[in-house]
Every structure is written in structure tokens, then in C-alpha cells.
């Protein structure tokens, strides 16, 4: 099974990667500051992109400011390369840059993602770009920006701990399953974007640079390589990730995040990998019944 790299001629009439150079410069300056202050949200003058706000415009602007002719881009949504919005964003960059795109995680120099961290570990020379809807981890506890800025300035995160503790009192455990808050570099509490908490441990001391873009909220932030990223918890209620009794019905993986698929209207269920590249590669690698793997292509 070979998956060719996709290339396409660049659309005429637009600057490389759509954004004008001045906008890119402003964004690049913000990104450099973001990396220098891990986990801190840097404001930037987000522009209107040809996709709606809330549909990845932050990640798209970050990628547009990063990407060059030699890059290879992978875009995933919910872990999959083939969900509609991932397809749309990938197509946009092919038209606006002419760069190659790929579905293979290890071939990409830039991976733009919505709601997942790929299962395969990323390397030093890859950059992971997250699309972020609400960058402020304290937003649902305190709606005012002037207040949340103050709380971050003072490193005053008691509010968040109270919220998590109330969960434990009421439910016996912390009732946050995605966008689970993390402490970055022992200084800033950060929203990891709506990834399942399953993915949180992958962020800790990750080898690759992680950049986060929130277009509508006009913020970028970053986690440099090898930086501590701890999910908030309590000594008597340590952080734990989701686990499944099942393995992937397609590739047999027992270490990946599984989506539940409803197979009929009589309560039939099956579980398959959310990371489509991981799953199809494992099937290609012959981890399971070959006939079954081929049928699923």
C-alpha cells in the first residue's frame, strides 16, 4: 500500500499561504513570544480567513505563518485525515501554497490537528499545530478577560482546583473528559484544546514543538519541546486516562483512543481507532487478519 504525496499547482492571485506578509510577520512575532513564555496566551490580530471562525482559523493562521515550499502538511480532525473539515483545510493549503500533503504522520513536517494528538510519537523536526476554540482554561469559571488575565498574572489557580474538587465531592471523580486543564512548565495553567484527556500525557516532554491557535479569540500559545505538561489532579485522586475493555475491531490495537461505532439499530457496537493513519498502517503492517484489513480499505 503506497499513499502518494498530494501536490497541486498554487492558485494565482493570492499571496503564498493566503495571508499578506505583514499579517504573517505579526503572527510570527506572537509565536516567538509564545514559545518564550510556555503556556501563556499571546494576543494577536487574528484575520478573517476563508473558513468560518470556530472551524480552525487559529490553527490555519498559525500553519499559514509557518509553512514554506519545502514543508509537507498533514491535517487531521478527530484523529482522521478524511473528515470533511480536515479535507477542506488540506485542500486550502494545497491551493494557497502548492506544498505537498500527506496522511502519513511521520512524513509530515507540520501536523495540524483538531481534537487529537496522533498516536505515533512525533519527532524533533515536526511541529504540531492545534486548533483551539476557547484558549482560556479559566473561561467557564470566570468569563471576564480582565479577571482571568489577573489570575494568570498572579498564578492564582485556586478557582480551578475548587472546581475539580467539587467534581470529586459530587461524582467521586473529576468529571472533565476532554480539554482537561494542564500546568505548563510549573507556571501557567493551559487549555490543551478539546483533545480527550487520553492524549494529555503525550504532551508532557513531547519532542516536537506544539503550537496552539485560537482565531476567533485572537490568541496563540505554545509548548516548547521537552517541557513539563502536567494534568491537574490531587494526591488522593491522581489523573487517569480513559481505558477500554475492547481493542480496535479493525487493527486490534489496544493502546489507541477508540471511537464507538453504532453498527445497527439493535444496540450493536464496535470500537475502532480514532487515528485513521495509525489504524490503516497497522493493518498494512499485518497486525491482524490481512483479508479483514484489505476489506476495510
Amino acid at each position: 500500500m503506497t499513499m502518494p504525496l498530494h501536490t497541486e499547482a498554487r492558485a494565482a492571485g493570492y499571496n503564498f499561504a493566503f495571508l499578506d506578509e505583514q499579517t504573517k510577520r505579526a503572527l510570527r512575532r506572537a509565536l516567538l513570544k509564545a514559545v518564550a513564555i510556555p503556556g501563556y496566551q499571546v494576543p494577536f490580530a487574528s484575520r478573517e480567513m476563508p473558513m468560518p471562525f470556530g472551524w480552525g482559523t487559529g490553527g490555519i493562521q498559525v500553519t499559514a505563518s509557518l509553512i514554506g515550499p519545502d514543508d509537507v502538511l498533514k491535517v487531521i480532525d478527530q484523529g482522521s485525515d478524511d473528515t470533511t473539515n480536515a479535507v477542506s483545510i488540506r485542500k486550502f493549503f494545497r491551493r494557497m501554497t502548492g506544498v505537498r500533503t500527506t496522511e502519513r504522520t511521520e512524513e509530515a513536517t507540520i501536523v495540524q490537528t483538531r481534537h487529537r494528538v496522533p498516536e505515533r510519537a512525533l519527532s524533533d523536526d515536526q511541529i504540531l499545530v492545534y486548533q483551539v476554540p476557547i484558549p482560556e482554561p479559566l473561561r467557564y469559571l470566570e468569563p471576564r478577560e480582565t479577571e482571568t488575565r489577573k489570575l494568570h498574572a498572579l498564578s492564582e489557580y485556586g478557582l480551578m482546583h475548587v472546581k475539580l474538587y467539587e467534581d470529586i465531592a459530587r461524582h467521586g471523580h473529576i468529571a472533565t473528559t476532554y480539554a482537561y486543564p494542564v500546568m505548563v512548565g510549573d507556571r501557567y495553567v493551559m487549555d490543551p484544546s478539546p483533545i480527550p484527556k487520553f492524549d494529555n500525557p503525550k504532551m508532557h516532554r513531547m519532542r516536537s514543538l506544539q503550537l496552539f491557535g485560537a482565531g476567533r479569540e485572537q490568541r496563540v500559545y505554545a509548548v516548547p519541546p521537552f517541557t513539563s505538561v502536567r494534568s491537574l489532579d490531587f494526591e488522593d485522586h491522581p489523573f487517569a486516562v480513559q481505558t477500554w475493555d475492547q481493542t480496535c475491531a479493525l487493527c486490534g490495537a489496544g493502546d489507541s483512543f477508540l471511537d464507538e461505532i453504532v453498527t445497527d439499530d439493535r444496540g450493536g457496537r464496535m470500537f475502532v481507532c480514532s487515528d485513521s493513519d495509525y489504524c490503516s498502517r497497522r493493518r498494512g503492517d499485518g497486525e491482524t487478519d490481512p483479508a479483514r484489513g484489505a476489506a476495510a480499505e
Binding site: F16, E21, K24, R25, R28, I67
Partner: peptide
């Protein structure tokens, strides 16, 4: 654009 991108 290409030179700026590479330097960045």
C-alpha cells in the same frame, strides 16, 4: 515571502 519564512 520565501526568504522571510525561512528566516522565521
Amino acid at each position: 515571502a520565501t526568504v522571510s519564512q525561512a528566516v522565521f
